[in-house]
Amino acid sequence: MGPENAYTDRRVLVVGGSSGVGLAAAREFAARGAETVLASRSRDRLEAAAAELAGLPGPVTGLELDIRSDEQVERFAAAAGKFDHVVVSAARTPTGRVDTLPLADAYSAMDSKFWGSYRIARGLGGSISPAGSLTLIAGYLSRRPTRASALQSAINAAIEALVRGLALEYAPLRVNAVSPGLLATPHWDGMAAEDRDRMYQAAADRLPVQRVGHAEDIAQAVLFLAGNGYTTGSTLFVDGGGRIA
C-alpha cells in the first residue's frame, strides 16, 4: 500500500482540525485516503476547512465540538462512532507571568488544553480501534520554559505525563504526544505584524535549524506516530532544537 492510499478504509478524528496544526494533520490523513472528521467550536471555520480539503482522496466532514464542555464531549462520543486514529490539537491558552495572569485565564488555559485532552481521552478512548492511536499535542515549553510561561510549561508537562499513563491504561491502543516548538501559525495573528516578524526572526537566529516551524512539520510527526506500531507512551519533540538552543 503506497502513501497515497495508506489510510484508505481508516476513520480519523482531528480535534481542532479547522486551522493550524490540526488542519495540516487532517490534510495529510485525507491525502492518504482516510475518512477524516474535523471537530471544532466554530461552524464557519469547519466549513472553510472542509472546503479547503475537498477533492483529496479521503472524504472530509466537520462536526461542532467544544472540548471545554463535559456534556458536549459526552454527547459527541456517544454519537460520533468508531475511529482508527484520534488527534487532539485544540486549545485556547492565555499566557503570562504567574503573578500577573488573571486566575480566570489560568483556569481557562488548563481547562482547554489539559482537561480538553483528558475529556477526549476519557470519552473516546473506548471508541478508538485497539490497533489505532491517540495523539495529543503538547509543547516544548514543558522542558524549556520562558520567563512568562510557567503555566504553559506545567500544562504541557501534564499532557506528556497523561500520555504515559494512558498508554498503559488503554493498551494496546498507542498513545503519544507531539511537542512542537515555535510555529508560524494563525495562533499569532493577533500580534502586530512587526512584533510577530521580530519574534520569528529572533527564534530563527537562536535555533540550530535557523527557521521557525510550520504546521506541516508537526503534521508529519503526527502521521509518523499514527503509522508506527511500535511507538507508545512517547513524546516526540519537533522544536527545531529549541530544547538545546
Rank of each mutant, 00 (worst) to 15 (best):
G2T: 12
P3C: 03
E4P: 00
V12D: 04
V14Q: 02
V14S: 06
G16L: 02
G17R: 05
G20S: 08
R27P: 04
F29E: 01
T36C: 01
V37A: 09
A39Q: 07
D44W: 00
D44L: 14
E47C: 02
A48L: 14
A48I: 01
L53N: 06
A54I: 08
G55K: 06
P59G: 04
P59A: 07
G62I: 02
G62W: 07
D66A: 09
I67V: 15
Q72F: 09
Q72A: 15
Q72W: 10
A77P: 10
A78P: 08
A79K: 13
A80F: 08
H85D: 12
V86R: 02
V86A: 10
G96I: 03
R97G: 11
L103C: 06
S112D: 11
S112Q: 10
S117T: 13
Y118R: 14
R122D: 12
I128G: 10
G132L: 06
S133P: 00
S133V: 03
T135M: 04
Y140V: 13
P145F: 10
T146P: 01
A148C: 09
S153C: 15
A154S: 15
I155Y: 12
E160W: 08
A161C: 11
A161T: 13
L162H: 09
L162E: 09
L166D: 09
A171I: 08
P172W: 11
P172Y: 11
L173F: 10
R174M: 08
V175T: 09
V175P: 06
N176K: 01
V178M: 05
V178P: 04
A184H: 12
G190A: 08
M199H: 07
M199Y: 12
D205Y: 01
L207K: 06
V209D: 00
V212F: 09
G213Q: 05
A215N: 03
E216P: 00
A219S: 12
A221G: 15
V222S: 01
F224Y: 15
G227M: 02
G229H: 13
G229I: 06
G229V: 06
Y230N: 11
Y230P: 04
T231L: 12
L236H: 01
F237K: 00
G240W: 05
I244S: 13
I244T: 14
